[in-house]
Each structure stands twice: as C-alpha cells, then as structure tokens.
Design a protein around this nucleic acid. Sequence first.
RNA 1: GACCCUGUCGUCUAGCCUGGUCCAGGACAAGAGCUUUUCAAGCUCUCGACACGGGUUCAAAUCCCGUCAGGGUCACCA
Length: 481
Amino acid sequence: MPTPRLRFAPSPTGYLHVGGARTALFNWLYARRHGGQFLLRVEDTDKARSTDESTRAIFEGLEWLGLNWDEQVVYQGANLARHRADAERMLASGHAYRCFCSAFELDARRKQAEMSEGAFKYDRRCDQLDRAEVARRVAAGEPSVVRFRVPEGSTGWDDLVHGAISFPNKDIEDFVVLRSDGTPIYNMAVTSDDIAMRITLVMRGDDHISNTPKQIMLYRALGEELPQFAHLPMIHGTDGKKLSKRHGATAVADWQHEGILPQAMVNFLALLGWSPGGEFDEVMSMDEMVAKFDADGLLKKASVFDTKKLEWMNGQHVARTPVAQLEPLVTTQLLKDGTVTRELLQARDAQYRAALGVLRGRSRTIMELASQVPIFLQHRIDPAAAAKVWPDAAGALAIIDLARDTMLAAPAWEPDAIEQALRTAAEQRGVGVGKVLGPVRMALTGSASSPGISIVLGVLGRDEALVRLAAAHAFVAGSAA
RNA sequence: GACCCUGUCGUCUAGCCUGGUCCAGGACAAGAGCUUUUCAAGCUCUCGACACGGGUUCAAAUCCCGUCAGGGUCACCA
C-alpha cells in the first residue's frame, strides 16, 4: 500500500474554527501515524470572502496547535487553468454539456417548482441541443455554463467512518462544473486538486457527505482512481446545534487567549469524535495520540463541545508541563495584567520558578496560575481582607509574633515542622487551627487565600518569611495606632 | 418537501462487528466527605443512560424490521 496522502482544505473566510482544527488534527494524526503526508490547501476561489488576514490566522492556528504540514501550501486560486482544462476534457469526452439557461431564468423556475412539487432539479433541456446549435450559440458569444451529465444508477462508497453510503443518481441533478465566466465550481476545483495532489484519503466534515457522490462521478469521468473517504461527525454547542459564534469562543485563538495550552486543546479535540477504544488514559501527549490513532477509532456521532472538560483537561496538562516551558507563558500573562514588573521577575527569578513549580499542580489555566504568582514575589497586604482575618489588633499581633517565635526557635528550616508547631500551638491555646493559620497566612502572603502554609514557607525561604512577618507586625501596629 | 447521516448517564465515551462475563464500565460536570486553615488541586462516595415499539433467540445495548427524534445537504457559495 502506498503511503497515504491527506490534506486539510480550509477556505480563508474567517478564523481557524475548532471544528476545522479538529478536522486538521485528524488528518495530521492519520498521516503521522501511517507515515504519510499531511498537506495544506487554501481554498481561496471565493475572492469576495477570502482574505490574507484569515489565511494568516489559519496558519497561526495550525502552528500553535503543532500541526505542521508537508510540502508547499497549495492555493486553489492558482490552479484555475487546470480546473478549467479538466472540465473541458469532460465536455470533449461527452461527460458534460453546455447549458445556456441563465441564472435568472433558473432562479424563476426553481421558485416555481418549490411552490408546487417541492424540490427543483434541472430538467436537462440544454442536453437536447444538437451539436451545431451549441456551436452556433457559442460562436455568437452567448454565455453558457458546463454541466456534468449525471449517469443512471447509483453512486456509493465505503466510508472509513460510516461504512457503506450510497445515493440514487436520480436525486442528483446535472450540476454545474464551470460558470459562464469559465471559473470552476467547488466540486470541480476540489476534485481536480485532490487528483493533482495525489490525495489518497479525503477526511473532512460530515457536511460534505452529499458532495461526495458528485465528486466520485467526476473522478470516474476523468478516468481517475478514487481516493478513500472518511466523513467526520460535526461538533455542536451545548444546545445541540452546530457550533457557531453565539456559543462563545469557537476560534482556537480564543482559547489560546483564555490560557489554554495547545497540547490540552489538541488532546481535548482528539477525544471529540475519536476514541482509542477499551480502557485508556484520557490525558495524552501528542506522541501518544499519534501512536494510538487509527480510523477504526473514529466515531459517527456529533459531539458537544464541553468547555468544562476542556478546562479540566488543561489543568491536567498544566500540571504536567515543565516549569521552563510554562514560564514564558505566565510571564506574558503577568506583564499583561500589570501585577508585577519585568524587573521584579528577573530579580526574584529563583523564587518565581519555585512558585511556578508549586502552582502548576493547582491551576486549570495560565491565568489562574498567574493570578497566584504575585503573593510569592511581593508582599502587599490587602486591607479589606486583612480587616476580616485580623479583626482585633492585639490578637493579630499575638499570632504574628507566635509565628515569628516559632520560626526563630526552630532548630532547622523545615516548613512542615513549623506548620506542625503552629498547629500544636493552636491546640494548646484551645482554639481552632484555622484561627491561627488564617492570620499567619495573611501575614505571610497579604492574602486570605493561598497554598498551604508550609508550601508558602518553602517558596519564600526563612529570611523572606521573617521579613514579611515583621512587615505584617508593623502594618497591624500602625493601623491600630 | 426530497435525499443522506446519527441515536448508551446532563456531556465525552467503553461495550455493539464475533448475542450471555452488562440489573451497562470509565471520564467531565453536579452533590457529599477527607478538611474546626482559606482558595485550588487530589482522593473517596453519591446521583445518573442502552430513544420507542415489534421481531428472532433459552438469552438482545449487541442481530432484523418499523416508528420517533436530532443533524446535514439540496446555488453559475465553499
């Protein structure tokens, strides 16, 4: 069996949508798994809607996800001459014919048909025209389109996802392949390009199932061998409808900005419409997915995009990502928030990295992680929170001093032992552990919520911890005066 | 309207091909607990589904037929 060649063929009329990203991912995964090629084709034949900006956005989205493509990007618009030549070849071989019915006229007939019998199907009236008349009208400059002559019978294929699918040809009208201005219609361009690119497996969304019989007829008329087809199920919003703007974030770039890691996005998308089967770990690396991916794991049912699960998945990946890899992402977020300065990050680099190490295991997104970093790098007491945790000055001072004395008295700097000593002290005083650790947390971090005391102590270090306690003492004493 | 596709917990799914081991397993979400130290994470537990109706069979989530529901497509758009 020759090595498989697959392609992702987006039309650059917007951003890289999660549905498109999932299609690209499956093509990529299949190609990588089977040692084939993953090609990219930009379907920019609709000049009115295509923009360079969205072409760029698609490239960026694919790159962010880590879906690298092979060979040069193919721009469909550059192949108009071949599309046209292929259509004319069918005209010459008798698989297609010229139609002089105007779009306006057809429109009127379509409307009329819809009112009486329902669906409109082209009645082939121009197929009756004799050769001489066609030649005369063409020579006279009368505009015409090229229509494919749909044969009798039925057209089907063995879909890699759905199994056997077939359509009675009588339900398919003689479709246009070349417009009156000589440009190709979608199915013509796609088929011509897939042939030229020697694509062996066309994997795309379910919504193309009804285009497939038309494309198959084109392959046959052109005397080409058929590729395999795999039609992936759609992705829906929580209301069961096709995912769209009103469902919120649907562009992969939106999720990038929401603090989602590309490996989490890819992992999540992979599990929408694919399952390795049997028992398996849902959290996978790219390599693991490539190793497990195969067509028999492809599912038929449309799935719902569940953002809660995406976030959970992201948390799993954040926890597994090395600090060195997390650091630039968190730094960008921190500087964007303006909560810390670049100078501070550089000055406290060791502490910053230590903080990332403890924080990554407890954050679902980069934002969440970033929001906890500042308490480790700078000591700022939040007055509102302080007033709640430290209702009376005398009590607060007593606990802050207790913490200081405990640390000073400790034989060695062991955060766990110090936290334990504070717990014991609380018991001896007959108060809840929270009554002691809460105020200590406030003194140490300036915030009412943070990781556990021993964790905080571990990141801060002895000197910093003592400095902060002294500052907290001064803060309380100052506001009491 | 016609044609095509799909139908297992709220969601993602395992199981279906090769009926029994499934009064259906896992994950996310939700609820409770571990936690009289917060926030988060983690762990434990709970809630929760074979769309419906027939048939075949000793036995059906699994095979067959029908119904219903949802989705997609029907352009000189892609």
